[in-house]
Write a protein that binds this DNA or RNA. Structure first.
Lengths: 202, 202
DNA sequence: ACTAATTACTGCAGAAAGTGCAAACTTTCA
DNA sequence: TGAAAGTTTGCACTTTCTGCAGTAATTAGT
C-alpha cells in the first residue's frame, strides 16, 4: 500500500484517485514480480486492479511508469533556481548531486518505494533498459540546466557522471542509510567511481 | 551508401542482402533526419526503401536498430577472453575502455557511421532515449564480464563510468581524431570526467 | 538449360502499447 | 434536487513487432 498519509480529511473524489492510482501501481508491481515483465500486460494489470485499460493510461503515461509508480520526474522551480545560483563549474558535481538527490527524495515523499524497485530490478533485470529509458527524461532536463553553468560537452559529462551514480543506487545499496539523504549517497558513489577510476586507470 | 567494399566477387544473393540492408538503413536515416522521428514510421521507411514491412523486421529487430544501422552489439570471444585475462581490479577501467572501444570499432568496420548518428542525435534529441535503450544491451553484457573481475557493485560502477564516456562520444566530439581509436578517446573522456569531478567536488 | 533444393520476400492475422473522442456515470455544490 | 464539474469507460485507430504459410527468386546438380 503506497498511501502514506491523509487518507482521511480528503474529499471523497481525491481519495478515490489516490486509491486507484495505488491499486494500479501495486497490481503492476505484483504481477511483474510474479510472472515477469512479459506476462504482465497492461490488460492483465488492469484486471488485477479492477480498472479499464483506458483508465490505466489516464493515471500513467506508460507501463514502466506504472511499475515505477511515478508519472514523471519533476524539477521544481525552487530546485532549479537554487542550482542556477551556483557559480559556473565550481562545485558543479556537488550541486548536481544535491539537485538530483532532491528530485529523487521528492519522489520518495510521493510514495515511490525505491527499495521495492531495487528488489524488482534485481529479480527482473530485463526491466533495466525500460527504467533507464524512463529516467532519461530527467537526465535531459538536468543537462539543459548544467549547460547554463559550463560548456555543453562538460555539462553532459558531469551529468552523466551523476546519473551513473543514480543508476548504481537503483541496483545495489552501498550502505544501509542512504534512504535518508539521497544526495549524500550520490556524492559518495561519485567519489567511489573516482576512486575506482584512479586505482585502475593507468 | 554503406557498402564498404567487395560489392563484386560476392554471390548475387549476398550482394542483394547487403544492398537491401543498406537501402533500409539509408531510408531510415534520411526520413528521420528530414521529417523527425514521429513522421518516420516503419511503413514510411519501407516504402522509401522499396521493401515490405515484414522484410524490414527481417533485417533489423527494431526501428532504432535500423536507424543506427546495427542489429546488435557483439562482444567476440577473443575480446571477451582478452578482457578476462586481466587481473582483478588492476587496470579495470582501462581494460573496459579497451573492450568497449574494440566493440565500437568493429561496428564502424561493419559500416556503422558514428558521425551520421551523432549528427542525427544533435538534430533530433528525441531519439536519445531510444538509442540509450538500444545500447543498454551491450551494457548488460559488459557488466556480466566486469563482475568476474570485481564485486558486483564496483563492477557496475566501473562499467557505468565507461558507458558514460560512450554516451558523451555519441553526442559531441572532444577532439577531431577520435574516430581512429575509440578506446583512446574513451580513456580521455573518463579522465576528463575525473578531472571535472575532482575540480568541482568539494 | 532444366530441375530441385535453398533461401529470401511477402501478405495476413494478431498481440501489445498508446491516443483521441464522446457517452455514461459519480461526486460536488448551490 | 439538480446542474456543473470531474472520472471512467468503450470504441476505433495507429504503431511496433511476431509467427506462419505461401510465393518468388537464387543456386546447385545433371
Amino acid at each position: 500500500m503506497t498511501t502514506l498519509k491523509s487518507d482521511h480529511e480528503l474529499p471523497l473524489r481525491e481519495r478515490k484517485k489516490v486509491e486507484t492510482r495505488a491499486a494500479i501501481h501495486d497490481a503492476a508491481l505484483r504481477l511483474v514480480a510474479e510472472n515477469g515483465v512479459g506476462h504482465a500486460s497492461v490488460d492483465a494489470i488492469c484486471s488485477e486492479a479492477g480498472v479499464s485499460s483506458r483508465t490505466f493510461f489516464n493515471y500513467f503515461p506508460s507501463k514502466v511508469s506504472a511499475i515505477v509508480g511515478l508519472s514523471s520526474f519533476v524539477v521544481t522551480d525552487a530546485q532549479r533556481d537554487e542550482f542556477l545560483t551556483g557559480d559556473g563549474e565550481r562545485y558543479l558535481v556537488r550541486d548536481l548531486c544535491t539537485l538530483v538527490g532532491a528530485v529523487m527524495d521528492a519522489t520518495a515523499r510521493d510514495g515511490v518505494d525505491r527499495e521495492a524497485i531495487r528488489d524488482l530490478l534485481g529479480r527482473r533485470p530485463e526491466l533495466a533498459p525500460d527504467v533507464i529509458r524512463f529516467a532519461s527524461e530527467l537526465r535531459h532536463d538536468i543537462v539543459v540546466l548544467a549547460e547554463q553553468r559550463t560548456t555543453p560537452a562538460r555539462a553532459r559529462l558531469a551529468v552523466t557522471l551523476v546519473m551513473s551514480a543514480v543508476d548504481s543506487a537503483l541496483h545495489r545499496p552501498l550502505d544501509a542509510v542512504y534512504d535518508e539523504q539521497f544526495s549524500t549517497w550520490l556524492f559518495e558513489a561519485v567519489m567511489t567511481m573516482q576512486a575506482i577510476a584512479r586505482e585502475s586507470l593507468d
